[in-house]
Amino acid sequence: MGPIEIAVICVAAAIVAAVIGVAVWRKAKGKKGGCGCGCQHCSGCASSRKRAGKK
């Protein structure tokens, strides 16, 4: 197995681990994710203190 193959496997594993990890972490924290669709129910989209603070 050459360096390209190792890199491909590492990147693929990292992507899957990151996506699953973030989902599990969010679930554990009980934080609703911002779906970005402009809805009002989640804390992520619409407004946030952080965004306004940048201004």
Binding site: G38, C39, H41, A46, S47
Partner: peptide, 27 residues
Amino acid sequence: FNALTGATAHVGNWPGVTVDKREGVCK
């Protein structure tokens, strides 16, 4: 709210777009 806080909350030309409260900071 968007004008005050710089947010991009969904607006629409019909009654009932907003069904929950949301917070932002106006500077």
